[in-house]
């Protein structure tokens, strides 16, 4: 395989629901070690794109290639074996199972030895999960569940990690933790494709990004450039209306804080 071939290549991907084209012939790529973000409004087709790549919605047209091999006809449960894992929207941990069971399921495609090694890595990354290993996953807080969902995906030791709205419904302090984690995984060289409503933070961590609108890619480029573009700022960053938010303009440290 040539050096320059992307790790994940999406060519003319189309996803339809009852005749409606949710995703309309989009093409993009993800290189080894990259973090690429897909941003856009609700219903732009971001989640559908990820779900089609992971095989849980059918590909109507086009192709998805992982390291040169087509995933088009590969059933969903075979895709983790090929090295691609999706962390679904809304975390979707198995609430009635223990944290440990969840992690073991994440390593379902691997040998017992690999699972043991994966468990060590995940516990090193998330010491909190180790403390709560025998607890039912449903009793974890939202942030901990998101960590579990990501840890569970890492158990498969994927070559490509897809993340669907990892910040959804989380408190700002937890959102920061999630993005810190993404930075850390990125530094470790994990290749990631990130879908986010929180465009500001997504663009802050990503190398490159694509902007989706009604199922089509309307803009793409380096994340920093997109973040500076007027159009993106107006449409997806709500420019000019956030002056009161501490995340945007940090408040001066109050007296009583020390």
């Amino acid at each position: 395989m040539s050096q320059s071939a992307p790790l994940l290549a999406v060519n003319d991907l189309t996803v339809t629901y009852g005749g409606i084209r949710a995703v309309d012939r989009i093409s993009f790529s993800l290189n080894e070690g990259e973090l690429v973000a897909l941003i856009g409004a609700n219903g732009a087709g971001k989640s559908s794109t990820l779900r089609a790549i992971a095989g849980i919605v059918p590909i109507a047209e086009g192709d998805v290639r992982l390291a040169g091999e087509s995933l088009r006809t590969v059933p969903a449960h075979e895709i983790p074996r090929r090295g691609l894992v999706l962390v679904p929207e809304g975390r979707r941990v198995f609430g009635e199972l223990t944290v440990l069971d969840n992690l073991y399921l994440g390593g379902y495609t691997r040998s017992p030895e690999e699972r043991a090694a994966g468990l060590e890595r995940v516990f090193a990354l998330f010491p909190r999960l180790k403390e709560r290993a025998s607890q039912a996953a449903g009793t974890l807080s939202g942030g901990e569940q998101q960590m579990l969902a990501i840890g569970r995906a890492l158990m498969a030791n994927p070559r490509v990690l897809l993340l669907d709205e990892p910040s959804l419904g989380l408190a700002p302090v937890v959102v920061e933790q999630v993005f810190d984690l993404l930075r850390r995984l990125h530094a470790e060289g994990v290749s990631m494709l990130l879908v986010e409503q929180n465009a500001r933070m997504a663009l802050a961590v990503a190398d490159r990004a694509y902007v989706l609108q009604t199922g089509r890619i309307v803009m793409s480029g380096a994340a920093a450039e997109l973040a500076a573009s007027d159009e993106v700022r107006a449409r997806y960053l709500g420019a000019g209306r956030l002056s009161t938010v501490p995340l945007d303009a940090p408040a001066p440290e109050p007296e009583e804080a020390r």
Binding site: G18, I20, N42, G43, A44, R51, P75
Partner: peptide
């Protein structure tokens, strides 16, 4: 095919138009 359709993504067009 491989799964039932995702209703949340069923029709993206109108929402986007308003945005």
């Amino acid at each position: 095919g491989r799964t039932r359709p995702d209703p949340s993504a069923a029709s993206g067009a109108p929402a986007l138009a308003s945005v």
